[in-house]
Structures are given as structure tokens and as C-alpha cells.
């Protein structure tokens, strides 16, 4: 099962480190990362494998949301299926 983690907000030092650190803590494997910085706005999309996640998915999503709040960023964790169903025929 794969999840999409999106991180959007003002660029600061260490975003990638903190987000991927939180993933590692939960045993979530990051498989792909794309990121861009446009006029100070940082946008990162991480594909991750959550099949071995050591906490329930909803807790993981909540934890990442909290991390985002602490860092002043908006972090969302959503199941890959939602994007596949909306954007693929």
C-alpha cells in the first residue's frame, strides 16, 4: 500500500530531513521524492510505502499533520488510490 505525502509551505532549512526522519521512525519507506522551491514556497511530494508502518495509518497521517503544524508547513498524507481514481481512467 502506498501513500502520498505532500509538504507545502515557506522554505526553511531541514524540511526534507525532518519529514523523512519522521517517516523512518514509523518504518515508512520513502520510494520517490520530487520537490521544488518557487519564490520561497516549498512544495514536496513523497511517494512512500506504508505496508510495514509500525502505527495505524490514521495515526501516521495525524502525526505528520502535527509535525507540519510545528514547522509551520502544511503536510498531508493521503492514500495513493484517491489520486489514481481521480486522475487516471
Amino acid at each position: 500500500m502506498r501513500a502520498v505525502i505532500t509538504v507545502i509551505g515557506k522554505d526553511v532549512v531541514g524540511i526534507l530531513a525532518k519529514v523523512s526522519g519522521a517517516c523512518a521512525q514509523c518504518n515508512v519507506n520513502v520510494t520517490e521524492v520530487t520537490q521544488s522551491v518557487l519564490q520561497d514556497v516549498f512544495a514536496m511530494i513523497m511517494m512512500s510505502d506504508i505496508k510495514d508502518c509500525n502505527i495505524p495509518f490514521t495515526d501516521f497521517a495525524a502525526k505528520m499533520g502535527e509535525l507540519g503544524k510545528d514547522m509551520g508547513l502544511s503536510i498531508h498524507v493521503m492514500h495513493e488510490d484517491i489520486f489514481n481514481s481521480m486522475h487516471r481512467i
Binding site: 502520498v4 505532500t6 507545502i8 520530487t34 512544495a43 511530494i45 511517494m47 493521503m78 495513493e80 484517491i82 489520486f83 489514481n84 481521480m86 486522475h87
Partner: peptide
């Protein structure tokens, strides 16, 4: 997945 599609959702 396309980054634009993800951000759109």
C-alpha cells in the same frame, strides 16, 4: 503520479 494532479486534488 503527476505533481500537478496531486496538488490539484
Amino acid at each position: 503520479l503527476n505533481a500537478g494532479d496531486i496538488l490539484e486534488t
